[in-house]
Design a protein around this nucleic acid. Structure first.
Length: 196
DNA sequence: TGCCCGATTAACT
DNA sequence: GTTAATCGGGCAA
């Protein structure tokens, strides 16, 4: 049995926690898979929901680490974050993609798709597959229905700029498993020594 | 109060 | 490549 992450795992800089989450298995009511893509956000970051202070929506971000912040994106989708750093930092990691491994039939039914690669490759997609909604906002990560299982294998991690934002768009706070086929978008590769 | 924009996605041309 | 779906936050009036 792999080690379960405790809430103290998240009581560190969001820039340490974010890459450490790559390779961790995320389960919601037993359904989920291995995290392959995340993004870090911080109160001092103009792109973060917490940048302009606490509101009803982002209140969980201002609370203690190790809790789930779920918000509605574009009025349609749900997106899931893990709160990091000591209470008040208002920092969180957006979970952007996982490799679906547990509960595949359920995820396929919820998504109306058969292709595994598209089940959880994107923050809105994975919330639909894991059926994460506003009812999960504010719940602790070390208690049911959540389970976080430590890496069982080393992973090769790459960083890049975040996706879908316009403010502070140049900060390289997106982290992912190198060359994973389950990323929401591939990370840019270094240009070959010669070629187009 | 009204308007614009956004940590997205799928279905278009 | 573009666009619709749909709603909370932020800001101007």
């Amino acid at each position: 049995m792999r080690k379960r992450l405790s809430r103290s795992f998240f009581d560190r800089s969001v820039h340490e926690v974010a890459p450490d989450l790559i390779g961790v298995t995320l389960l919601v009511a037993g359904v989920g898979g291995r995290i392959v893509e995340v993004e870090a956000y911080h109160q001092t970051d103009p792109a973060a929901h917490s940048y302009r202070g606490e509101t009803e929506r982002n209140a969980v971000m201002f609370g203690p680490p190790g809790y789930v912040y779920v918000y509605r994106s574009y009025g349609i989708h749900w997106c899931m974050n893990f709160v990091c750093e000591p209470k008040g930092s208002a920092a969180a990691v957006l979970i952007r993609a996982i490799v679906p491994t547990e509960g595949l039939p359920l995820m396929r039914r919820r998504r109306g798709l058969s292709e595994a690669r598209l089940l959880c490759s994107g923050p809105g997609r994975l919330c639909e597959a894991l059926r994460v909604t506003a009812m999960h906002n504010g719940l602790a990560l070390d208690a049911p229905p959540f389970a976080l299982l430590a890496r069982s294998q080393p992973v090769e991690i790459v960083a890049g700029i975040r996706i879908g934002i316009t403010k502070a768009a140049d900060r390289p706070w997106r982290y992912g498993e190198k060359s994973s086929r389950f990323l929401s978008k591939p990370f840019p590769v270094n240009p070959p020594a010669s070629g187009s």
